[in-house]
Design a protein around this nucleic acid. Structure first.
Lengths: 185, 185
DNA sequence: GATATAAAATACCAAGTGGTATAAAATATG
DNA sequence: CATATTTTATACCACTTGGTATTTTATATC
């Protein structure tokens, strides 16, 4: 029993390691729960992964959305994103969502479609942020909002992915700052 | 027998798919060769992978080095890199080297150290290129050469990785051009 | 042509995967 | 206290993985 604990263990294991390399047996052992219990609660490994991703979204991704929807200025918001990507201790082992997205072909159907959903939601959030900044006269560049949103999301993901591979946070901050400087010129 | 053919089949399979998802059995079947033959020739799966990577380096990576060492100007060379990443048909399924680097923890020791070697060699090539352009007065920005080299390599890798995930080549060109615009301003 | 030798293919091994049927234990109900 | 029911845990299934031992086949050599 204790689906809450299983979910927490699974989320952490998938997040800390590589989602595709963490086996169900391993999670059961870590959580002190039998395999049939997990199957009765989550239906399949895919179901558990999907739930773990949902759990992660509520715990971590929500913070990123909060930054984007904070209504702050362009420079201030980009700085907050740079801070989050390069120095937030939770990103020390990378982002579960980005890890899953990078290995999407290995995911089950439920988890994969959740990844696609979050991807779309993220894209919209970036676009809404840039649109608001443009309307506020804060971002006069001629780059279309959709293109800017894609670029911003990609660079953010790149920085956090490098975080997962042990890159030096200072270096990551430098690189991301350089990449996002195209918004401020 | 026919180690050449096995190597070719392995390189293509690893390259087209995901190196970690292509099993030795699969390669043997594709190449029409028995598993013991592969082991007699390459010693282990790790040995085969390492050889496949070497083969790939000679066939593809060499072209990138050629672009960097062509002695052309900054803009012209960056354009050539952008062309290669966004439109070269060989990059349609991504780059074997980048795929291996992204999943480095799944590789055997031989392959992994080869990946590290190529990574260092690539870094030096980027740095040598930028150093030459700076000395030629072609790149007056205050960014240190080492930082610029890292940034250039990362952006190039990002573009090709996106190529592998089916992203639109035009969009990729746009994003990479934007990212590399920091060199020209 | 008979024999020694090298090569290749089949069959096998232990380990691990996701998933499940069955037996054991604990809980609730009479 | 005894019985019925639900939850849990053990044991198992079929399959795939990398890696080998063994047998068969082909190739030289005499």
């Amino acid at each position: 029993m204790s689906a809450e604990k299983v979910l927490d263990v699974a989320m952490t294991a998938y997040w800390h390691g590589d989602p595709a390399d963490v086996s169900l047996n391993e999670i059961c052992q870590l959580a002190g729960v039998s395999k049939p219990s997990v199957y009765r609660e989550f239906g399949s490994e895919d179901g558990l992964m999907r739930s773990a991703l949902d759990s992660y979204a509520g715990a971590v991704l929500s913070d990123v959305f909060a930054i984007l929807q904070g209504g702050k200025g362009l420079q201030e918001t980009l700085d907050a994103l740079i801070d989050f990507a390069s120095t937030d201790p939770r990103m020390e082992t990378g982002c579960l969502f980005y890890k899953m997205r990078a290995g999407k072909h290995r995911l089950g159907p439920q988890t994969r479609s959740r990844v696609d959903e979050f991807d779309a939601v993220g894209q919209s959030a970036y676009a809404a942020f840039l649109q608001a900044r443009r309307e506020a006269g804060d971002w006069p560049s001629g780059l279309p909002v959709a293109e800017g949103a894609k670029y911003l999301g990609e660079q953010f993901a790149l920085a956090i992915t490098q975080r997962a591979s042990g890159e030096d946070p200072g270096r990551i901050r430098q690189m991301l700052t350089l990449a996002l400087s195209v918004f401020i010129r």
